Simulated scan of single mutants.
Amino acid sequence: MADVWTVSDWAIGEADPAAFIAAFSRFADAATALGGAREGMILQDVHDSTHFVVVRRWDSEAVIEVWAQEQQLHDDELTALVPQGSKAAVLVKVAELGGEGSGTSQGSR
């Protein structure tokens, strides 16, 4: 199983951030119901409350393709809030980065 991720970058303009988060959560729930969608998160820019990045891990690119075909059934509320949509990409993990306590070398200081 590949470690496949989707990333979408959202500039929501005048939309209410709480409404965007709620709408995107419902949109993502539809992906979860289809199967193959794993953990994900909605990240908000600390300096621009109208900028969000959404990251989600999937079982495979094939699962993402199925979701892409079905998403039009679930995106009305989201596109009403942010009609210009987002910039999106499908990515594959190529390396792990160590964190505090991970035992991975952090280089010399």
Rank of each mutant, 00 (worst) to 15 (best):
A33T: 08
L34E: 14
E70H: 10
S108D: 09
A30K: 08
F24N: 14
A2D: 11
T104F: 13
A23G: 01
V7W: 09
V54C: 08
S86R: 14
R109Q: 09
S49G: 07
W58Q: 04
V53R: 10
V54G: 00
Q71M: 15
W58G: 03
S49A: 12
H74T: 05
A62H: 08
A31S: 15
A89T: 06
Q71T: 13
D29E: 14
V63F: 03
Q71Y: 07
V92K: 10
A80W: 05
A18C: 03
D9P: 01
V66S: 07
I12D: 04
V63R: 13
R38E: 10
A31E: 05
F52W: 07
A33S: 07
L91N: 04
E61R: 11
G35H: 09
E65H: 11
S105M: 06
D75E: 14
D45P: 00
D9N: 13
S25K: 11
R26Q: 11
A18T: 08
H47K: 14
T104I: 12
A11N: 15
A80C: 04
A11E: 15
D59T: 13
M1T: 11
V66C: 01
K87N: 11
W58R: 05
E39G: 14
W10P: 00
R57D: 00
L81Y: 05
A33E: 11
A62Y: 03
A15I: 08
Q72Y: 15
H74Q: 04
V54R: 03
F20A: 01
T79S: 09
A31N: 08
I12Y: 07
V92S: 10
G36L: 04
G107S: 04
D9Q: 08
H51V: 09
F27N: 05
I42G: 02
P83N: 04
Q69T: 13
W10N: 02
R57S: 12
G101N: 05
Q69G: 15
S25F: 02
I12T: 05
A95K: 12
R26W: 01
P83T: 07
H51G: 02
E65F: 07
A2H: 07
S105I: 00
T6Y: 02
Q84V: 13
F52C: 04
G99W: 07
S105E: 06
A15T: 09
G99I: 09
R38N: 09
S25C: 03
Q106F: 08
A89K: 07
E65Q: 14
M41P: 00
S108M: 09
S102W: 03
A30L: 01
G99S: 10
S86T: 12
Q106L: 08
V7E: 04
D29H: 09
M41N: 10
L34Q: 14
M1V: 12
E100G: 06
P17K: 06
F20D: 01
T32H: 13
V94F: 07
M41Q: 13
V92H: 07
A15K: 08
A37Y: 09
W67K: 02
R38L: 14
E14T: 13
I64C: 02
A89M: 14
V55G: 03
Q106V: 08
Q72R: 15
V53P: 00
V66L: 12
R109Y: 06
G40E: 02
